[in-house]
Amino acid sequence: MDTVWIAMIPAILAATWRMATPLIYAAVGEVITERAGVLNIGLEGTMLLGAFTAFAAVYATDNLWVGLLATLLVGVVVGLVFAFFTVTVKANQIIVGVALNLLGLGLTGFLFRTLFLGTKNAVRTVPVLNIPVLSDLPVVGEMLFHQNLMVYGTLLLVPVASFVLYKTAFGLAIRSVGEHPRASDTVGISVSGIRYAAVMIGTALTAIAGAFLTIAHTNQFVEGITSGRGFIALAVVVFGRWSPKGAFWASLLFGVFFALQLRLQAMPDLAIPYQAFQVLPYAATIVVLLSLRGRSHAPSALAIPYEA
């Protein structure tokens, strides 16, 4: 029994980063959105739309690039719609987010059942980059040097997002719009423009997170495949204190729970019912939120529509 456990550690570590990947894409995107003062709780629906789009596009063309491009496009369109209702119409962001989740669930379910039900529906997946020798290292080898390209993509995403947010005029504008939109307005920054952009970046990355689930992590679409990751990403943003780096590490923490869930469920003859593991990421999310205890670094203007 002990040896089985020890043998599992590398696999769990490897799964941790892999399971954290969709959270990282979505949470980093949401960090950018929220730093501009917009709360998008429609990540779950966005992720589903991304997952379905990537799957359908790769299914149709057998080309991963087309899949990713289509996903980005859908992500941007979703962002456009969300921003239209929250920034232009100035509707309550939480309610619009709820609607977006329902739309994502309904649209993907509807399209999947009309287009794909009963077909053999496995698609090509993002290739794994196996770095020889290094990937054979004990314990960490598999985790660090034997992952698919989208997992490695997070190593690019986080510094780029940090750079944009902290080192460019655009990032400065995002941060100022989320803290004090009126001040930004008076120096000629378009609050709406920045918020549209930040929302669309957020939904595009969230859609990519969805794509990861259907064309990298697995090779098919299942209704509700995101299983709450969009909501967990919201908690990741809080736990990561609204910074891309924070979101990365917080995602890894949640990745551990997903990895444990995955591995422990697969363990044969374990006396514990599998639901106990299934529930892990969700229970962990609650525990993490409770542990934060009012320590909040939320942008001041978060979820408040700007009235010019």
Binding site: K167, T168, A169, F170, L172, A173, R175, S176, E179, H180, R182, A183, S184, T186, V187, G188, I189, S300
Partner: peptide, 27 residues
């Protein structure tokens, strides 16, 4: 303005250059 149009979380310099550069420019 009567109520200051300054972003409290940013530095003095950041507040001054806010809106002065094109978005794609580095700081």
């Amino acid at each position: 303005h009567q109520h200051f149009m300054l972003v409290p979380t940013l530095t003095v310099a950041e507040n001054l250059i806010l809106g002065q550069y094109r978005y794609w420019q580095r700081l």
